[in-house]
Nucleic acid binder design. Structure first.
Lengths: 249, 249
DNA sequence: AAGCACAAAAGGTGCGAATGTTTTAGCTCC
DNA sequence: GGAGCTAAAACATTCGCACCTTTTGTGCTT
């Protein structure tokens, strides 16, 4: 059995975080808290022992005895791992901590944990969004209902009647979000919506002074979106592709 | 000021979850725990009052007084919101809870929380992956170094020399992951890698009996990947596009 | 032997207290 | 008047305890 913690003595450790770094025998770079430390240790145990999904990792009492940590601390570590999709918890007499089935969503979420909040992420998000536009819009064109089309035309109307720049961008956002809601691909939809809303900041200050240029830009954007919505309404995949190309210019 | 909880009486509520649903005056559908309830209420307060990033939402003591909840409970709610990227917490005398700057990664992570582990997610993930292939490979073609190309050719060699189906898929996976590592778009890379590894399960049982068909399939896949890697090596964007199209057939 | 009721075991939530860390306002001392 | 120190206010973590829900094994009853 892997030794999880250096706490040979049953954790007469003082509260607070000062004592953590001094705890001996840490293999990984020291996480900040005992709970994170324990979570990392459990994750490594699962990896190194190659436990299959569904295998029993332990129970709260067993981990509590093994580490000497308080119940709340162990529980916190387990909560972290459950949130990350690593563990599956079952209550009841035969319950305990089990290795979870990894779904693509969970994998994606976990991968995103490794992507820090780098500044380039905004630009990258916009590029990603533009690239997903086709997948989303084609999916929408395939699955749209008459009700969907009516609502899309309404939202295009909002786009046309919006007064200021902010209102225009909000209407634009609402339209694209509504289109995405039609697309049946939940993964693509989640990524797309998640990266929406960051296109507004990119072009907001380009037309600070030039009213005429701003109006021309808006007219053009409106035309592009009308074309896009009508292409989706028609269900013509080729037309959608063309409209997306025009949209992303 | 928005009333956050129905706890007019200072929470002489019993522990456990039974009493929660009975608490009066909930606007939203009842979240499971007090902490989640409070988190939802705070999120709604931020939305409805249109608080700007950087605005002060409150402090732990102020929320504690407002809700009557114990310190640990309020702290748990704040922890949830911080994890979701909604709040930014600053310690110190002038500290407190502030509305956070929302980065695209954080938004995406939060959006994915709403995507349950639906079975269709696997198929959706594969479709999403295929669609991202072009973005990833074009990015790789733009940024590749000579070292990258050498390693890619090595990995193609592994693909060729792999013996069984499992080994072939693993080599395939390693190759695509290495290509993705070249692409400079961190967001696209995270999504792509996160959805990788779920293509193997789709076609594994198609050639259970027919050895010749399996061999033909592998020869074809190998040819496609050689074409892809050479297109990336050449830096010819058009050739990459063609190779991706062939790859996704 | 079948069915049912109860108890045991496991996880979940909440509370209060204690202690540690971070940050800064405000005061003191040159 | 400026530099440095101090105390206060805020968040962070941990602990021990109490009570609750869920699940299931077990034994009793019929």
């Amino acid at each position: 059995m892997t030794q999880i913690s250096g706490a040979v003595q049953p954790a007469v450790q003082h509260p607070g975080t000062a004592g953590i770094a001094a705890t001996a025998g840490l293999k990984l770079a020291a996480p900040r808290s005992r709970a994170e430390h324990l979570a990392a240790a459990l994750e490594e145990r699962i990896r190194t022992q190659g436990l299959e999904p569904g295998a029993l990792v332990g129970t709260l009492p067993s981990l509590r005895e093994e580490t000497g940590y308080a119940r709340a601390t162990v529980s916190e570590a387990v909560r972290l791992l459950r949130e990350r999709g690593v563990l599956e918890i079952r209550p009841g007499r035969t319950g305990g901590l089990f290795v979870a089935e990894t779904s693509p969503v969970v994998r994606l979420r976990h991968t995103l944990l490794t992507v820090g909040d780098q500044p380039s992420a905004v630009i990258d998000a916009i590029e990603l969004r533009d690239h997903l536009e086709e997948l989303i819009d084609v999916g929408a064109a395939r699955c749209r209902t008459d009700d969907d089309v009516s609502e899309l035309r309404l939202l295009v109307g909002n786009l046309e009647s919006s007064r200021d720049w902010d209102g225009f961008m909000r209407a634009n956002w609402a339209l694209h979000e509504r289109i995405a809601a039609i697309c049946p691909n939940v993964m693509a939809r989640a990524v797309y919506v998640g990266t929406l809303g960051h296109l507004s900041s990119s072009a907001s200050s380009r037309f600070d002074e030039d009213e005429a240029a701003a109006a021309a830009y808006r007219t053009d954007r409106l035309r592009v979106h009308v074309e896009l919505v009508e292409a989706i309404a028609s269900g013509d995949i080729t037309a959608v592709g063309q409209a997306v190309t025009n949209h992303n210019l």
